[in-house]
Measured scan of single mutants.
Amino acid sequence: MTFKLIINGKTLKGETTTEAVDAATAEKVFKQYANDNGLDGEWTYDDATKTFTITE
C-alpha cells in the first residue's frame, strides 16, 4: 500500500510517499524521516486517504 506524508513545517513544506504493509510501518518510516529532517510537530492520520500530516 502507498501512504503519503504531508509536511507543513516552519521551514520544510511538501509531501512524500512510502510503500508499507500497514499504517504502523508507514508511521515509523515517516517519523524517522521527520526526525532526520529536524521536524517536530503534531501528527494526524486519515485512514480513508492513507495520509499522515505533520504540522509544526
Rank of each mutant, 00 (worst) to 15 (best):
N37Y: 12
G38D: 09
A34D: 00
I7G: 02
F52C: 00
N35C: 09
A20V: 05
K31Y: 06
K31M: 10
L12P: 05
L12N: 10
T51N: 03
T53L: 05
K4T: 14
M1R: 08
E42M: 13
D47M: 09
D40V: 13
E56C: 07
T17Y: 14
K13L: 08
A24E: 10
Y33S: 02
K4C: 07
L12C: 10
D36E: 13
K10R: 13
L5F: 08
A23R: 15
E42V: 14
W43I: 04
T11Q: 15
N8D: 10
A26T: 00
A34C: 08
D46C: 07
F30G: 00
G14H: 11
A34P: 00
I7T: 04
E27C: 09
N8Y: 14
D22P: 01
T55N: 11
Y33P: 00
T17D: 05
Y33H: 04
I54W: 04
T44E: 08
D47R: 06
K10W: 08
Q32Y: 04
K10I: 13
T49W: 04
D22R: 03
E56L: 11
Y45V: 02
T25M: 11
N35Q: 15
L39K: 02
N8W: 15
V21S: 12
D40L: 15
T18E: 03
T51V: 07
K10T: 13
E15D: 07
T18S: 04
T55F: 08
T17W: 15
A26R: 00
W43D: 00
D36V: 12
A34V: 12
T18K: 04
E56S: 08
N35P: 01
Q32M: 10
T55H: 08
K28Y: 09
G38A: 10
T2C: 08
A23Q: 09
N35K: 15
E27L: 14
Q32T: 12
K28R: 11
I6P: 00
F30K: 00
Q32C: 05
E15H: 12
K4V: 10
T49H: 08
V21F: 12
G14L: 14
D47C: 05
D22M: 03
I7H: 04
A20Y: 02
F52A: 01
W43M: 08
V29I: 15
E15A: 10
I6L: 07
F52W: 06
K13N: 09
T49Q: 07
D46T: 05
F3V: 02
G14N: 06
I6M: 06
G9E: 03
N8C: 08
K13A: 08
G9Y: 10
D47S: 14
F52E: 00
E27T: 04
T53R: 05
N35Y: 15
E42Y: 12
G14Q: 13
T51F: 03
I6Y: 05
A23D: 04
N37P: 01
V29R: 08
T49A: 07
T51Y: 03
K13H: 13
T18F: 10
E56Y: 09
G14R: 06
D40C: 12
T53H: 06
K28N: 09
L12K: 09
T11I: 14
N8V: 09
G38V: 04
K31Q: 07
Q32S: 08
L39R: 02
Y45C: 01
E15I: 10
E27S: 07
D36P: 01
T25D: 15
V21L: 13
G38N: 12
D36Q: 11
Y33D: 01
L12T: 14
V29A: 08
E19M: 14
E56A: 08
A34F: 03
T11R: 10
T49V: 06
K13W: 12
F30P: 00
K10M: 11
I6S: 04
A23T: 07
E56Q: 09
K28C: 07
K50L: 09
N8H: 11
D46Q: 04
T49I: 08
T18H: 07
D47V: 10
K10F: 12
T2K: 11
Y45K: 01
E15N: 07
